[in-house]
Design a protein around this nucleic acid. Sequence first.
DNA 1: CGGATCGATTTGATCGATCCAATCGGGGAC
DNA 2: GTCCCCGATTGGATCGATCAAATCGATCCG
Lengths: 366, 366
Amino acid sequence: MARGTGPIRATLSDVAARAGVSRQTVSNVLNTPEVVRPATRERVLRAVAELDYQPNTAARRLRTHRSHVLGLRMPEVGDGVSGEILDRYLHALAKEAQRAGMRIMLFAADDEEAEIREYRTLLATAGLDGFALTHTYPGDGRVRWLREHRVPFVTFGRPRGEQDDPPGAEPHPWVDVDGYAGTRMATEHLLELGHRRIGFLGWPDGSGPGDDRRAGWYAALRAAGLSEGAPEERTEEGVSPGTGAAARMLADPAVTALVCVSDSLALGALAAARDLSLTAPDRPPVAVTGFDDTPVARAVGLTSVAQPVEAVAARTVELLLAQIPGAARPASPGAGVGRGGRRDQERSSFLVTPRLVVRESSRPAR
Amino acid sequence: MARGTGPIRATLSDVAARAGVSRQTVSNVLNTPEVVRPATRERVLRAVAELDYQPNTAARRLRTHRSHVLGLRMPEVGDGVSGEILDRYLHALAKEAQRAGMRIMLFAADDEEAEIREYRTLLATAGLDGFALTHTYPGDGRVRWLREHRVPFVTFGRPRGEQDDPPGAEPHPWVDVDGYAGTRMATEHLLELGHRRIGFLGWPDGSGPGDDRRAGWYAALRAAGLSEGAPEERTEEGVSPGTGAAARMLADPAVTALVCVSDSLALGALAAARDLSLTAPDRPPVAVTGFDDTPVARAVGLTSVAQPVEAVAARTVELLLAQIPGAARPASPGAGVGRGGRRDQERSSFLVTPRLVVRESSRPAR
DNA sequence: CGGATCGATTTGATCGATCCAATCGGGGAC
DNA sequence: GTCCCCGATTGGATCGATCAAATCGATCCG
């Protein structure tokens, strides 16, 4: 333990001596203030402030079997979630955890098996209170293991496929961003701007998020009565694939806008649109939207669907705390029943709505 | 502390009982095996394995005042270091720390003052053994604070400016990537391909890393006798600025290659080159190199200088351990003196050489 | 006016490891 | 054969908090 040059840190006993009470009373002031007489409480709090007392978490954990630390495997980059989203999620998670008196511990693992091995070790040695998972998939062994061992956890990403949830069991807690709502918003935005023939540039079928996003585009067009024969291309992630696929759709002069499943593909589409504006200068500019609102999108002025990772992180912590016995849950609003007749603290999942960031790539005046 | 459904975890006493020795002997086997007779050691190790014993870090820390945890502030995104580099660094740091029996704890802070406040709290409550810092700047108050309080730390990024180091004092431990060597390699690569007129697309003067990278480009040209009147443009980070600045340099038909200070600017330069190949089809393709080897570079086939963050992370941990009293240092190679007559463990900083990743953007056949 | 009651506070034990001083056991010296 | 010494091992105390139960004090009631 690194220690400053200053005096040894104050302990509970020091505070107790200074306030003229016993250790336990100090502990009560900090943990269950309501059982301490106000006058005593005041005195103790003053002593705490004067000595700058801060509790030793090791001692606390030894006794209570709670570490106030959450685990997160640092995912390999390029694992699916765009790198920057991950950064922002980590940052927000650290912040939200802190707000709730918790910390985030990182660990690394090369594969599923190694990750489960780390769970074991971290639970045994560091006594982590729970885990946040970022890249789950149908039949994920980690989910099964954590469930079986009754370890609190929350996934960023909804469960896809039934394997994750044993029959009859509650689904595990999760938080996710509503991709459907995102592309729907983007598409409606383009419709409002007067576009009629709006293509979709997506990933191959079978990726959950990709399918959701396509569904949002389709639903918006259908509601507008424009889904008939709407053009759509599927390709793998990447800028160059996006250029090729976009060019194919733009071969039809009626197509004036493209909704893309990711910023990378949108970047490729922008390149195709740029080529088009050089070869066919009389054609009106093509509008493009992306997904994730990455720094590249900001840099090139791409309209994009932004994932509210701060909200996701806040919900993640909330759902984790709800599973940890004895963890202070955020006070429910009022003593009554929440909206919809369902108590908020009973929720075990959240689908967060993203928001559309409009930039030049979709604005009429370019 | 989350606990599985299995039996209560084994403690030192359990192991001792099973092996028929005392607690202290078990502790010795694990911490100072050389003082235990081999036969006893065997017996204890067998018991450890049979019971799957894993030490409780809270108890250990309480007694030893070492937590085996390093702190890292999760930087805000867009703070200077490219997002993806940060991810990879974090991942590597977690991995390297783990290899050395340490863990990484994340925390968040909005500004320097808040960060120092967190240092205080983390040292007092969680007893962190040290910190890794990522975005230091001349006169950084965090560096001063950590120094004054004798807290072990290492910065990713060399100190720039004298304020950081009190006169007469050793510079603080740091690890950095040699940007000079990186652009020099990139430039030499272009020279080998036959390019003679090679421009530099950089950031405005005054950014340490930016200046280093420019110097590398300049040194390579100078060594080749081609530095006279070499074109160069400075602009802020971003794709669009890059396109504009690159177009200005490419207005001179003699310029056939551009070395860029970042992948974003290089991306912009690629767009300018693309425009050029459409408007002037007879002109030979322009070669472009970037810096950081981000996913975008991989996606668009951009030759780029890759930062070896794994090596940086390994050095970071190494330098941190060297400062932590009692931390097991990696065994020095042999009993003699290291290369250069200087013992490795005395090093307090490392300048790591990056490597050039060659892709289509600089290959002759496009 | 004594005893039951209840709230506020204190005391002693404990979590699981390591530190420190004491003890044990066996080989070598005399 | 006895004594000494040194390496191996043990037992007790301790780190700093919380738990559980005991104690204290004042109020309330019959």
